[in-house]
């Protein structure tokens, strides 16, 4: 039987799970960070598109978990565990966290990209998930697509050839 693979799309401040042969994609990462957690044996992966480093920044009543680095990583692990994944088998790849508008440094908001990257790394460390590859920083937006079959993360930027990490 021929299985056609589909691309699961993850929006901003959102997270989803994918199993092979399907792939998972998120578009237009600027200061946001795309976090992929995957298990190559089970060929399953989760992707979160986070916007902010820390849920303590939240001033609203409810916390939208996929929006913050600290809540998104934990929530993604739980989602994958529900699918029968062992946390110890998980590996991570991340991309994003650019500084799109570099010369406007007067507020913290302009440094949000690097802060997001730091926060995600800290969370991965907390859960002892090895960070296998990263494509972070710079000043360009990124669109990323992950294949749980190969474990490769495709990173596309404007005006540059796409690369695999």
């Amino acid at each position: 039987m021929i299985q056609e693979s589909i691309v699961i799309k993850v929006g901003i401040a959102d997270m989803k799970i994918v199993t092979a042969p399907n792939t998972i994609r998120t578009s237009g990462l600027g200061s946001c960070v795309g976090v992929v957690l995957y298990d190559l044996q089970k060929k399953i992966a989760g992707l979160a598109h986070i916007m902010l480093p820390d849920s303590s920044l939240a001033r609203g009543e409810t916390i939208h978990k996929a929006k913050y680095a600290d809540t998104a990583v934990e929530c993604l692990i739980q989602l994958l565990e529900k699918e029968g994944v062992n946390k110890k088998q998980l590996k991570a790849k991340i991309a994003g966290g650019a500084e799109m508008f570099k010369f406007m440094t007067k507020t913290d908001i302009m440094r949000i990209g690097p802060r997001n990257v730091d926060a995600v790394k800290q969370e991965l460390k907390k859960f002892s998930i090895p960070l296998v590859a990263e494509d972070v920083g710079g000043s360009s937006g990124r669109t990323i697509e992950f294949s749980p079959e190969s474990g490769k993360l495709m990173v596309r930027t404007v005006n540059q050839p796409s690369k695999e990490i």
């Binding site: 901003i12 401040a13 578009s27 237009g28 990462l29 600027g30 200061s31 946001c32 916007m51 902010l52 920044l57 939240a58 001033r59 609203g60 939208h64 929006k67 650019a98 799109m100 508008f101 010369f103 406007m104 007067k106 908001i109 949000i112 360009s140 937006g141 990124r142 669109t143 404007v158």
Partner: peptide, 27 residues
């Protein structure tokens, strides 16, 4: 208004800067 910043890039990557402040209080 601040000094303007220019970017030629993906819409999502650019517009998300306008959402950072809002995203701390609202979805």
């Amino acid at each position: 208004p601040s000094v303007p910043a220019v970017g030629i890039d993906m819409f999502g990557a650019i517009i998300s800067y306008g959402l950072i402040e809002i995203s701390q209080v609202s979805d």
